[in-house]
Design a protein around this nucleic acid. Structure first.
Lengths: 206, 206
DNA sequence: CCTACCGATCGGTAGG
DNA sequence: CCTACCGATCGGTAGG
């Protein structure tokens, strides 16, 4: 067993202190929350003094903003262009979302829940991005209804929120489910989503 | 049922200071998180001095434990006995869960996310209760598969987590959706859930 | 990146 | 329920 375990395999990526701080922030904000994480915790994670943290960051709040900004962008990028029919697009949407969650479940949890700690003026931009992502899903579902692929009596809002609920809950149990590859999990969730919105599954609630 | 100190049955009851503190904690923990809420915030909400808060509570942590303990019990009680076939039970489960969420979305958010701030030894009991609730849903789904009402190729774990995700995400959007009664929302979500697990909706992912 | 430090705030207590 | 206070910790800064 080599002492330099992860030394440059293909790309010599040595993380900067700033990158290491951001990685520590993801882990700590996820487990203890933004308010429950001190700048001293971040320094301790890198083995430096509390005051030294500010040689690499502007403020604790700026770290949160950058983390969530880039985090939401990962989701937006992943579903920006989806090929195929609305049915296929919806499958791709769910699978892409689960893939991004699985890449870093801690980051996912921070993006979903810690945005409430973001203060104006950054907050407005974050909320707008979240809405844009929801709108992306809504458009797919609308197209599916219009194309006759999804049930015509489907309630758009309920469907959008049900799908987002399913995929956004993943970080709560994905880590404890390391046995299954995330692609399998994503495909399984996509199956359930498609079954729930597809036409021909019988009458809805009377 | 344990003792109720001096509560009048079916009368306009005047909340005690302790009850008012718990109500304030629900609201503040939900919006700012447990760590982001100070005992001074709680005192301010009741118009009393910070130190006076301790005339009514033991500690901030005890408030969180009591809040989440009784909160989870609400969910367990709501689904303890569900009539009918597995299909009907699953519908009742979703509708009952959404009803409890709608009763107090702030409390729901605290129950779902702030339990991570609970320290041992209380933590073990909370985690066990959460697992018991999940097990309750798993049993219904297993019964539905065994009875031939749900798809035989349904993945139990995925189905359980998908359903929990849908209903547990409700507090994120229910407050913004005040126009629709929660019973309608619950029925709509139950429709989607039943459609996703029911037999005869076509082949799953190849 | 360290030492040394700032004023503010934290959860909680003593003694009325 | 108040006044007065405790030691600990907070986010952040000055000056090397």
């Amino acid at each position: 067993m080599p002492r330099q375990s992860h030394a440059r395999a293909s790309a010599p990526k040595k993380p900067t202190k700033q990158e290491r701080l951001m990685a520590a922030a993801v882990r700590l904000f996820s487990r203890q929350g933004y308010a429950g994480t001190s700048v001293r915790d971040l320094g301790k994670a890198l083995g430096i003094q509390p005051g030294s943290v500010y040689a690499h960051i502007d403020s604790k709040h700026t770290m949160l903003v950058q983390l969530i900004d880039s985090g939401i962008d990962q989701y937006l990028d992943a579903v920006a262009e989806l090929p195929g029919t609305p049915t296929e697009q919806l499958r791709h949407f769910v699978e892409a979302h689960v893939r991004v969650v699985a890449e870093d479940v801690n980051r996912a949890r921070v993006v979903y829940h810690q945005w409430r700690h973001i203060q104006p003026p950054d907050r407005a931009r974050i909320v707008a991005k979240r809405y844009a992502y929801e709108q992306r899903l809504r458009d797919i579902i609308d197209a599916g209804i219009a194309a006759g692929e999804f049930a015509t009596d489907l309630d758009r809002s309920t469907a959008v929120r049900a799908v987002l609920g399913m995929v956004n809950w993943c970080p709560e149990w994905l880590p404890a489910d390391g046995s299954e590859p995330s692609e399998v999990v994503g495909a399984g969730l996509a199956d359930l989503v498609l079954a729930s919105v597809r036409v021909g599954h019988g009458a809805h609630h009377p």
